[in-house]
């Protein structure tokens, strides 16, 4: 993973090629996402960038009817709500992302514990297009 640095920007650079990166502590073994130069568990600075599987489990979620500006620009509103959640990756750490392909018309039907796989989402239109992390059920 030498092509990516610990700078936060590189997390999104990696996403552009569908890679989810994090960091691994060479001292205590802790895995962290996004990647960081300092291990939050042992506080050491002996960390390396690793590629993660993108597989995980839904821990918490919401279906949003009053969107953020970015999501409103992506076409979401009260009639077209979207799901976001916190996902526990199989490698251990957790991360937030939009959850696609779940029944947002019935939030009660969305199950915590659902197995998910990462995907990437382009938002921002042609001029400001950026790649974001998302998940969908396996």
């Amino acid at each position: 993973m030498a092509e990516f640095s610990m700078n936060s920007k590189d997390f999104f650079t990696a996403l552009e090629t569908d890679q989810l990166i994090g960091s691994h502590c060479l001292d205590c073994g802790a895995m962290v996402v996004p990647q960081r130069g300092i291990c939050p568990r042992c506080l050491g600075s002996n960390t390396e960038i690793v590629s993660l599987s993108g597989k995980g489990t839904l821990l918490a979620f919401t279906v949003i009817y009053v969107p953020s500006l970015m999501m409103a620009q992506a076409g979401y509103d009260a009639k077209n709500p979207y799901c976001v959640g916190v996902v526990k990756l199989d490698e251990g750490p957790k991360i937030s992302g939009q959850i696609l392909d779940v029944d947002v018309s019935q939030p009660e039907s969305i199950q915590i514990g659902t197995k998910l796989i990462m995907t990437t989402i382009k938002r921002g239109g042609e001029e400001n297009e950026k790649t974001y992390l998302g998940f969908r059920p396996v």
Partner: peptide, 18 residues
Amino acid sequence: FEVPAGFTFPGFYAAMAS
């Protein structure tokens, strides 16, 4: 890393509620 997921403030607390 959180807002780009699409979260709003009610959304954060709603996720905690879930």
